[in-house]
């Protein structure tokens, strides 16, 4: 999936192109741009203004989605560097990470059968959150290092974070 081609999302929000984004500031700028460009502002405008307003706000929404959470932001920064995330053919993962994922998934499956499920799920969720924090830190480091190795490591981190996100969703489903 790709966004509508257009300007750099960081530029759109007037923010420096960096992994470290002040999310409060980002949200404020998002709302301000929406408030100016939303089609409701153009209810009485000409057809071409309305069309542009829809395109513009669609782009603002896409940009906000791409920058608001660290996984999407990492993916977007790599995209800007020409590193594609969605190559289905490349499914290699670190064996250690895969082992860990299998263990977490087993633990998740076990909660279905136990009485103190709520407590177990909460524990599992904390575990996943901690892992996510570690990955965010690693991603920040790799992106700062850059270059072929840095980008490759960052890409790996993003893919691992996508796994963790999926796991988080599944935990939430069971809660």
């Amino acid at each position: 999936m790709q966004a509508v081609p257009g300007r750099n999302y960081f530029e759109l929000f007037g923010l420096p192109e960096s992994f470290d984004v002040d999310v409060v500031e980002l949200a404020g700028r998002y709302r301000e741009l929406q408030r100016r460009f939303h089609p409701d502002r153009f209810a009485a405008a000409s057809e071409s203004d309305r069309r542009r307003s829809v395109q513009m706000t669609a782009e603002i929404n896409a940009a906000y989605q791409a920058l608001r959470d660290p996984v999407a932001r990492g993916r977007y920064l790599l995209e800007l560097r020409g590193v594609a995330m969605h190559a289905d053919t490349d499914t290699r993962m670190e064996p250690a990470f895969l082992m860990q994922q299998m263990e977490l998934r087993e633990a998740l499956a076990e909660t279905r059968a136990v009485a103190d499920r709520g407590a177990r799920l909460a524990r599992l969720q904390r575990q996943v959150e901690e892992l996510m924090e570690q990955k965010v830190a690693a991603l920040r480091r790799h992106l700062a290092a850059g270059g072929g190795d840095g980008n490759a490591a960052a890409r790996n981190a993003v893919r691992e974070m996508q796994f963790l996100q999926k796991l988080t969703r599944e935990i939430e489903e069971l809660e």
């Binding site: 999936m1 790709q2 509508v4 829809v54 929404n61």
Partner: peptide, 14 residues
């Protein structure tokens, strides 16, 4: 192409 709960207006391409 467009997941539910995406804020509209929205545009995506594939």
């Amino acid at each position: 192409i467009i997941p539910r709960n995406a804020t509209i207006p929205t545009a995506r391409a594939q």
